[in-house]
Amino acid sequence: MTAVAAFAAWLGAAIIVLADGRRGLAAGIGLIAVGFTAIAWSDGVWVGGACLLVGGVVAVIALLRTGPQDWGLMPAGSTPRLILAVAGGILSLWVAASVTTGPGASLRFACLAVLGLMAGRLLQSKAAVPALAGAAGLAIALAGASELGPNDPGFAPYLIAALITAGALLLPAARSHGA
């Protein structure tokens, strides 16, 4: 179950990397949020998971309500992005499953994959909305990563991450005409 959720998170990150359109970005954010929510709930972090889900939903709605509604998946010249998405996923899987030990490999994979891919997206993005979507994905991944620590992080990381996720896509800059 958590493996599927982690895969969904990676897929969402990959879509954000590959998509320039709002629908694509919304799908990506949605998958990331769902993936991390599922992982959180499977660990018994109900409130935190709910926060992430709410944040994700708000972000998706914000993306779908304004601006041109296109997917923009794999535009011309996106081969490097595809390589990034795939290679990032493979590398994260290898680190999570092989280099590191202990339970929670799914969470480790999801965190590494999303962090890495969102960093890549932010580096190559020139438009505002994909950059903001990348930031939102970062926030969700960071909230999930808080569970990796030895101590109970409480609800605060999830709440802040949810606020970032929702707030980023509600910023005025996110309502631009272009993606």
Partner: peptide
Amino acid sequence: LRAPALAVALLGAGLVFARFDG
């Protein structure tokens, strides 16, 4: 946003690696 967000990603990655066993 690029540089500060990259900073967040790198710090997050560092934090994640710090918590890994292995």
